[in-house]
Design a protein around this nucleic acid. Structure first.
Length: 404
DNA sequence: AATCCACAGGAAAGTATGGACA
DNA sequence: TGTCCATACTTTCCTGTGGATT
């Protein structure tokens, strides 16, 4: 036998399981689709589009439904001589209106004529209006994960551009998509009323809806007989468990498939699902740790040490000295407690750490207790894989080993 | 009911960094 | 080069909070 041999053929088309795959038919979102269609109705009439705000937890089909309906809309619009331009942007890495505006300009411009930061806000908006005007007609801007934008500015400016005389030809509608319903309340009331003209709420998927979705995709993705109902049910249960999240389920299904390929088996077993779960958990942690700042990693390491010593759950106050000690070893200036707490809070946000509120009233006050929510072994591994702290962590680790 | 603990977390200002432009 | 505009991260200062204690 040679070094190479072809993979066992289990995938007919693996890409069908990917997040960016656009299914031909949307499963389990009938009511939402109906509402969505009526919200988009003005577009086909050639009127000013309504601004639409979609919300619902991650992986409940907001993006998928949007993609599906907009491509339908675009092809239908041609029949009625309505000219539509679609711009889709994910705001995940865009934290300000300024960056969003630049992103939109670049979407409209040729690759040879892109803009970067450095211009004043005013200039950037001016460029944006010019680009939008030159496109003209109906323009629909999809802002996925709008809640990542920290200020209202662009969400106010675009809907009011006509009233403020910045646009005359272009009819612009915004579709905002958010995981976070609280985002809506955080908007100023004038933005709220314009951005949220039409609101659609996407509820979490039920377990049986998830099974239908997985089955639909699996039928295309895998050859017949490769995947059993039990495996589908298990993946669906994983997504349904806490969030009704189809993406989680699909990721798990794909990882399961990959593991089966690796093992050169011809069908997916339930044990593969368990392995896939571990593997996904690991990459979640590794990515989370890699995304931390240097200081965040040091805070995590301090918490990790305390955990190994059996001193967790612990409060920020008690993490501080340990954290300062690690900083000392690493020759890094320690942060002030207020800031250290922010980093602890961030670890909790990422699901790496866990925190519970305590309140002991007059003799103790209100505080959080932190503990690790992830396997320490995995965290240490992830910290060591992260290049920039490896040296420091090593020396501290050696020191730490010597202490116990 | 009033008090008070001890931190949570908001706000503003500061530091370091980097691109555009003249 | 220096100025202007922006961002990420931090420090400083502060008010808010929930429940045990009085």
């Amino acid at each position: 036998m040679g070094l190479f041999e072809p993979d066992t053929e289990i995938y007919r088309d693996r890409d069908v399981l990917r997040e960016d795959y656009q299914p031909e038919k949307i499963v389990g979102r009938d009511t939402e689709l109906r509402q969505y269609i009526s919200a988009l109705q003005p577009v086909i009439n050639g009127d000013q589009p309504s601004n639409i705000f979609l919300y619902g937890k991650a992986g409940v089909g907001k993006t998928a439904c949007t993609g599906y309906l907009l491509s339908e809309l675009q092809s239908d619009a041609e029949q009625y001589n309505v000219n539509i331009t679609l711009i889709r942007t994910n705001c995940e890495d865009l934290s300000t209106s300024y960056q969003v505006a630049i992103q939109l300009i670049n979407e409209l411009r040729l690759p040879s004529n892109q803009v970067t930061t450095g211009y004043s806000k005013r200039q950037v908006y001016k460029m944006l209006w010019e680009e939008l005007e030159s496109v003209g007609d109906t323009i629909i801007i999809v802002l996925d994960e709008v809640d990542h934008i920290d200020d209202d500015s662009i969400l106010y400016q675009i809907p009011h551009a006509r009233a403020n005389g910045n646009l005359s030809e272009a009819k612009v509608g915004i579709i905002g998509i958010s995981n976070d319903f609280k985002f809506r309340e955080s908007l100023s009331s004038k933005v709220q009323s314009s951005l949220c003209e039409k609101e659609l709420q996407f509820p979490a998927y039920e377990a049986d809806e998830l099974r239908d979705i997985l089955r639909q995709r699996a039928d295309v993705a895998f050859y017949d007989g490769v995947i059993s109902e039990a495996v589908i049910a298990k993946c669906a249960a994983y997504g349904a468990k806490d969030a009704g999240d189809a993406r989680q389920s699909l990721d798990l299904l794909m990882e399961t498939g990959d593991i089966a390929v690796e093992k050169r088996t011809s069908e997916l077993a339930e044990s593969h699902v368990d392995e896939a779960r571990e593997s996904l958990e690991k990459s979640r942690v590794v990515e989370g740790v890699a995304g931390l700042t240097h200081q965040g990693q040091i805070v995590l390491y301090a918490l990790l040490m305390l955990n190994e010593e059996g001193k967790t759950p612990t409060r920020a106050r008690d993490v501080q000295p340990r954290y300062e000690m690690v900083c000392n070893r690493a020759a890094v200036d320690p942060l002030v407690p207020r800031r250290m707490r922010d980093h602890l809070g961030e670890l909790a946000m990422l699901g790496i750490a866990n925190r519970i509120e305590r309140n002991k009233g007059e003799s103790g006050g209100r505080y959080y207790e932190y503990s690790l929510d992830t396997s320490p072994k995995l965290l240490l591994q992830a910290l060591q894989e992260t290049v920039d702290v490896v040296g420091e962590i090593e020396t501290t680790a050696q020191w730490f080993d010597g202490q116990t």
